[in-house]
């Protein structure tokens, strides 16, 4: 018995040595840069709404920042709901989201600080060119009510694909249903085959809506970035309710001591700087013929936010 214990111990030790060898060598392969760079490269971890990522805007913004601040920016693309969840746990340094109501709650709970508005654009209701529900040029609320009515009557012809993932776009969709006079839980979800909950990002949702010749709500930026890949066309794009405001906040370091707060500050200040705002304004114009995002600078009235939220640097 004693022998077998000794034996087991020996095997475990050998195993541990092999394991250490394994991780040691491959760990070195995996991250060659941090060990070879003498000056410490800091890493900023951002959780972002999918639209800022799927359009390519964030990749365009991060490169100059990385150079200027000798930093590495890591981006996790998730819906606003997921991003806020990561933030609440202190698992990221910065969040870029677009849902004022939940942002306000997040700030009030003390999880986030220093919210700045960085850009805006508009949501559009897109659908098949044949427009089977006939919603073209209606108000958003009328259009939603019509899609529901026609969808309930003929789900083979009229469908709506929802993000269904607690994202900012999903939140906006719920607001439109509510404003149009419906109870989201009882009147919309599970009300019939016409309503499809995708449970995925904006780009993927557009692809699903395209496959199913269905209507969906999209931010104009992601729609334009996907325009060549799908046949859906914008049908409703007018209405105050379609305003889409993007913000950045950092995680409260007092609540979550591990977060990289100073670099998070730099990132926010970088985003509201005139040069970056110009980059946002010009982003995608060459490729898509129109801007995907409008800069926040100078447009606080359009967005209905305080001027300080657009201009004041974080200190």
């Amino acid at each position: 018995m004693k022998k077998s214990i000794l034996m087991l111990l020996a095997v475990v030790m050998v195993a541990a040595a092999i394991a250490a060898g394994c991780t040691g060598s491959s760990g070195g392969e995996a991250t060659p840069t941090p060990t070879t760079t003498p000056a410490e490269t800091r890493t900023l971890l951002i959780a972002t709404t999918t639209s800022l990522y799927d359009t390519g805007l964030l990749d365009a913004l991060k490169a100059p920042f990385e150079q200027e601040y000798n930093a590495k920016v890591d981006i996790i693309s998730a819906g606003t709901g997921t991003a806020l969840g990561y933030g609440e746990n202190g698992d990221v340094d910065v969040m870029m989201v677009h849902d004022r109501v939940r942002e306000d709650a997040f700030l009030a709970d003390g999880h986030g600080i220093d919210r700045r508005v960085i850009a805006y654009n508009f949501f559009v209701i897109v659908g098949p060119e044949s427009d089977p529900a006939g919603i073209k040029n209606m108000t958003p609320e009328e259009a939603f009510a019509t899609i529901r009515e026609k969808g309930l009557a003929d789900p083979a012809d009229v469908k709506f694909v929802s993000r269904g993932d607690n994202s900012g776009t999903h939140a906006k969709e719920k607001v439109i249903w509510k404003t149009a006079g419906f109870n989201y839980t009882t009147d919309i979800t599970n009300s019939g085959e016409w309503y499809i909950e995708a449970g995925t990002g904006m780009g993927a949702t557009l692809l699903i809506a395209d496959e199913k010749s269905a209507y969906t709500l999209s931010d104009i930026g992601t729609y334009l970035a996907y325009k060549d890949k799908i046949t859906l066309v914008p049908l409703v794009s007018e209405g105050d309710i379609l305003l889409n405001v993007y913000s950045v906040m950092r995680i409260n370091p007092e609540k979550h001591p591990g977060v990289n707060s100073s670099l998070a500050k730099d990132w926010i200040n970088y985003l509201i700087s005139p040069l970056t705002q110009k980059t946002i304004e010009e982003f995608g114009v060459d490729t898509y013929g129109e801007p995907l995002f409008f800069p926040a600078a100078g447009n606080w009235e359009t967005m209905g936010v305080n001027r300080s939220e657009v201009e004041d640097p974080v200190v």
Binding site: L8, V11, A15, A16, I18, A19, C22, T23, S26, A30
Partner: peptide
């Protein structure tokens, strides 16, 4: 790198545990 490392570590545990 990720999957080979995981396999190495798992082998180092599974082999002695399985034998035991």
């Amino acid at each position: 790198v990720v999957s080979l490392t995981a396999t190495c570590v798992a082998t180092a545990i599974a082999l002695p545990v399985g034998t035991a």
